[in-house]
């Protein structure tokens, strides 16, 4: 009996050698429990050691192995070959990012944006550790929990049409994280994050396509974070017009 196989059409790009990306086909054994990442590892170990890509936990939590699979941003450790039969499967680097090599994209832009939204607890006065924990009820936890589940896998940026056209756009994950801290009952940094969020490249750029929430593998729903931040920003603006003396939060 001949072994069943599948074909992967993989984007290759060698800086300094290739003028532009090209496609290379590889035939791999088909296994019902293999994910696309297993197929890439098979290629690297057994067919072509020069193929470059990132991966680590292979259980959907480290966020390293995002790629375009048949044109859709996916974690390749969670994309099963069986869902793409009979193939071929097209594997490309995440869209909207500069490519360093093969399937490896540059993350520098996101890392810079992440820092800009100040994703840490900000307080006017910090409580000493010896005074114990901040109390936070399960309901207060639930208010931001969903937005704390982001694994920074970049699938939402690859799916975002606004980021594709306007790379200065803060983007779904960074905005969702800013929103996560704004919603945290322990945090008092709303005022400090607001200028970053309400710049033209912040939440207002988003046209509410919602693709980011569709592709998110962790159910974070960044689109909701963006829309609700817009609402909060608009309410702030209105309040400042009507009642300029009104403090907020």
């Amino acid at each position: 009996m001949t072994e069943e196989t599948m074909t992967l059409e993989v984007t290759r790009y060698r800086p300094g050698h290739d003028r532009e990306p090209r496609t290379q086909s590889f035939t791999v054994p088909y296994r019902t429990d293999w994910v696309v990442l297993d197929a890439l590892n098979h290629i690297k170990d057994r067919i072509d050691g020069t193929l470059s890509y990132r991966w680590s936990c292979r259980m959907g939590v480290c966020g390293s192995c995002g790629m375009m699979v048949n044109g859709v941003p996916k974690l390749t450790c969670a994309a099963f070959l069986r869902d793409y039969r009979p193939g071929p499967i097209r594997v490309e680097p995440l869209a909207n990012f500069p490519v360093i090599r093969d399937l490896v994209i540059a993350l520098d832009d996101f890392m810079e944006k992440l820092r800009r939204v100040k994703p840490w607890i900000i307080r006017a006065v910090e409580k000493p550790v010896s005074d114990g924990e901040y109390l936070q009820t399960p309901a207060q936890l639930d208010a931001y929990k969903q937005f704390s589940m982001c694994i920074n896998c970049m699938l939402c940026y690859a799916a975002c049409p606004v980021y594709g056209l306007e790379p200065a756009f803060l983007g779904p994950a960074a905005i969702a994280l800013a929103y996560r801290y704004n919603l945290d009952s322990r945090d008092e940094g709303y005022r400090l994050r607001e200028p970053v969020l309400s710049e033209a490249v912040g939440v207002w750029e988003c046209t509410f396509v919602g693709e980011c929430s569709v592709v998110c593998p962790k159910g974070v729903d960044p689109a909701a974070a963006i829309q609700r931040s817009k609402l909060a920003g608009a309410t702030d603006w209105l309040l400042s017009m009507i009642m300029p003396w009104a403090g907020r939060r």
């Binding site: 840490w120 607890i121 910090e126 409580k127 550790v129 010896s130 114990g132 924990e133 901040y134 109390l135 936070q136 009820t137 399960p138 207060q140 936890l141 931001y144 929990k145 704390s148 801290y181 945290d184 322990r186 945090d187």
Partner: peptide, 21 residues
């Protein structure tokens, strides 16, 4: 002290109804 420090740094520990970790 270390786990409380992490609580102060925003770790979303699961909570009891009274708000304690």
């Amino acid at each position: 002290g270390e786990v409380i420090q992490l609580e102060h740094w925003g770790c979303p520990w699961s909570r009891d109804p009274d708000g304690r970790v």
